[in-house]
Computed example of a mutant assay.
Amino acid sequence: MPNQQTHTIDPHTLPETITRYLAAHQAHDTATALTAFTSDATVTDDGNTYKGATAIEQWLNHVATAYTYTTELTGAQQTDPTHYTATHHLEGNFPGGSIDLHYRFTLHNNQIQHLIIEP
Rank of each mutant, 00 (worst) to 15 (best):
T8M: 10
T8A: 14
M1H: 15
Y103W: 11
Y84Q: 03
V63E: 09
E16M: 08
A86H: 02
H25I: 08
H25M: 12
G92Y: 05
P119F: 04
T74Y: 10
T74F: 10
W59S: 02
T35G: 01
G47K: 01
G52W: 02
L107G: 04
K51Q: 15
D100L: 12
T87Q: 11
F37I: 00
P15C: 02
A33F: 05
P119I: 07
I112G: 01
V43H: 03
I99N: 07
Y50T: 01
T82N: 13
W59T: 08
A24T: 06
N109M: 06
W59D: 00
R104G: 03
Y21R: 04
L73E: 08
L107V: 03
T74N: 12
Y67K: 05
L90M: 13
T32D: 03
Q111N: 06
T32H: 07
N93A: 03
Q26M: 12
D46R: 15
R20V: 02
A23K: 15
D80Q: 11
D100I: 11
L73T: 10
L73W: 05
F37A: 03
Y103L: 07
K51I: 11
N3D: 14
L115Q: 03
P95C: 13
R20Q: 13
D29W: 10
M1R: 14
T68C: 08
Y21H: 13
T35D: 05
I99S: 12
P15Y: 01
H7A: 12
Q58N: 15
A36C: 08
L90N: 10
H108E: 14
T44F: 01
H88S: 10
V43N: 02
D40K: 06
L101G: 01
D10P: 05
H88P: 03
T32M: 04
L14T: 02
L115N: 09
Y69F: 15
T49V: 05
A41Q: 00
Q4Y: 12
H7C: 10
A27C: 11
E118V: 12
D45V: 07
A76I: 03
P15F: 01
S98W: 07
T87F: 09
T79D: 04
Y21G: 01
I18R: 00
K51F: 10
Y21C: 07
H108A: 14
L115H: 10
Q77R: 07
T68V: 13
P2Y: 11
S39Y: 05
T38E: 07
T54L: 06
P95I: 10
T106S: 11
T6C: 12
E91V: 11
Y84V: 01
Q77A: 05
D80Y: 09
N110E: 15
I116C: 07
I112H: 00
A24M: 09
L73F: 06
H62D: 14
Y21K: 03
S98M: 08
H7Y: 12
H89T: 11
P119V: 07
